[in-house]
């Protein structure tokens, strides 16, 4: 992985991951209540998507914390090869995280497909494993799925004019921006920070939406 994060911003992404994990766990909880009441496949996909995202963000928060703690405690006194195993763990963590993200986006995208559409989802596993190892391709695939999700949510918003729908649309747009900026990191390393800010605001928007929904 060749992402170069500006040194003074090390650890910044942890805030976004941590907030995303909390938000996803809250939405998972309410999606479960929705699914329990309706027993609908579409609601199950919403639940499965946010549950996967919760696991993914918990995993990446834990691995990033570990990597940063070892790195910051060691950076001035350890030889470089001491850090290699830590970076290998972080790399593996990101591969698993990206596979989970793809699975979650696939679950969300499939919510908007016609009920009778058949898709052999199991084929996605080897495919996503391959893509997750090649980060730029992963971001392109994630962007394509998110573009479809944003398009369907925009359609819903135009049709219903619901503020909750608007929050969800904005959140998915910000997620798309996150992947787009990560794709453009080779142009400017500071884009990593902008990407993490986009991720942070995306999940804050989801959090605000769920707060509005649960308000009496």
């Amino acid at each position: 992985m060749d992402i170069l994060i500006p040194m003074q911003l090390y650890g910044f992404d942890l805030i976004a991951y941590f907030i995303a994990a909390i938000t996803c766990s809250i939405i998972t909880f309410y999606s479960f209540r929705l699914y329990k009441m309706s027993d609908s496949k579409k609601h199950f996909r919403l639940l499965a998507g946010f549950f996967a995202l919760t696991l993914g963000f918990i995993l990446i928060s834990a691995i990033s914390s570990y990597a940063y703690i070892v790195f910051l405690s060691c950076v001035e006194s350890c030889p470089a090869d001491v850090l290699n195993p830590v970076f290998n763990v972080a790399y593996l963590g990101y591969v698993i995280f990206y596979v989970i993200l793809l699975a979650a986006y696939f679950a969300f995208a499939s919510m908007y497909l016609p009920q009778k559409t058949k898709f052999p989802a199991i084929l996605l596993l080897p495919l996503s494993l391959g893509m997750a190892k090649m980060f730029p391709y992963f971001h392109v695939i994630a962007l394509l799925m998110l573009a479809f999700i944003v398009f369907r949510n925009l359609q819903n918003y135009i049709h219903r004019k619901s503020k909750y729908n608007l929050f969800v649309t904005i959140a998915f747009i910000l997620l798309s921006v996150y992947h787009l900026l990560l794709l453009l990191i080779p142009l400017n390393e500071n884009l990593y920070v902008a990407a993490q800010l986009s991720l942070l605001f995306s999940y804050l928007t989801f959090l605000f939406m769920i707060y509005q929904v649960r308000r009496k």
């Binding site: 309410y30 999606s31 209540r33 929705l34 009441m37 309706s38 609908s40 579409k42 609601h43 919403l46 919510m111 908007y112 369907r152 949510n153 359609q155 819903n156 219903r160 619901s162 909750y164 729908n165 929050f167 969800v168 939406m209 769920i210 929904v213 649960r214």
Partner: peptide
């Protein structure tokens, strides 16, 4: 009351209930 809340969540994602 619970139905109304989960209905709003479903509607936020454009899903019928």
């Amino acid at each position: 009351s619970e139905f109304r809340k989960v209905e709003k969540l479903a509607s936020a994602f454009g899903l019928p209930i």
